[in-house]
Design a protein around this nucleic acid. Structure first.
Lengths: 131, 131
DNA sequence: TCGTACATGTGTGTTTTACATGTAGGAGCG
DNA sequence: CGCTCCTACATGTAAAACACACATGTACGA
């Protein structure tokens, strides 16, 4: 059952915008995960709030659908834990908080990101070497 | 026509290796592209040689199949240009060199990678802020 | 009552990555 | 020669990650 019509899209890491002109996005794979974990470590937050705060960390908008789906996966993996908040005004919110496992995972991400920084630094140094 | 039997695989960015223990790989999306371009800027190289030299830049082995496929895409996009070398001993090699467009693309990658460095630095600073 | 903001989701196509396999030439050895 | 190993290039394909479209409902103010 097809509900959606196919669309023309341009979703690429690299994209030619003119002769000898390219638009390149260098992004860390799955960067949304550590970003979410970091925000949650600071305080419990619900999905919609994450959606608003994430771009500050990631540099670009995060896909809404994937974020909500992703949070459920994190919960089923024991990384976060959630409960409904019906008290606050407006629609009910599912508020997430980090588990101990989540904190450990964040630490792993941090060290992996540092390693990635070192590699990229090496790349850039070699790039500058003989431009 | 299915030629390969399906296999159980665990290929993930995040992987639990124990209670509270995770293995995380933080990698820049499509990092192989700038790495190839950088090596090619230094001198013309053939695929198999790239395969050996890339890990030094990327920090991990690069998939062979994807690399060869990827080089053909780069060529059809005008980023690199290749010709066969039958002179050297051993099997013929397809030797690649960068085009001007390729050089421009490399420059774009470098600046995108710097931007990514800045974002990740911001993340890590915020992470350290209140550990 | 209609529009808009908040809030949480599902459906599905596209791109990227991981892994398996195919083909072929040359080198060394019994 | 027959055999195996290494070099070199390439294709097949499934899973993972990502992008985009759409569904559903609350609440509030014009």
């Amino acid at each position: 059952m097809r509900r959606h019509r196919p669309r023309r899209r341009i979703v690429r890491v690299r994209r030619r915008v003119g002769p000898g002109e390219f638009e390149v996005r260098a992004r860390v794979e799955r960067f949304a995960e550590p970003a979410v974990l970091l925000l949650l470590r600071e305080r419990p937050v619900h999905g919609y709030e994450l959606l608003e705060q994430l771009p500050e960390l990631t540099g670009e908008r995060v896909d809404m659908g994937n974020l909500y789906r992703f949070l459920r996966v994190l919960e089923s993996d024991g990384i976060v834990r959630s409960e409904w908040d019906d008290q606050a005004p407006g629609p009910s919110k599912r508020v997430y908080e980090l588990t101990d496992e989540g904190r450990a995972l964040l630490d792993q991400w941090a060290s992996a990101l540092r390693a990635s920084q070192t590699r990229t630094e090496g790349f850039l140094a070699r790039y500058e070497e003989r431009r």
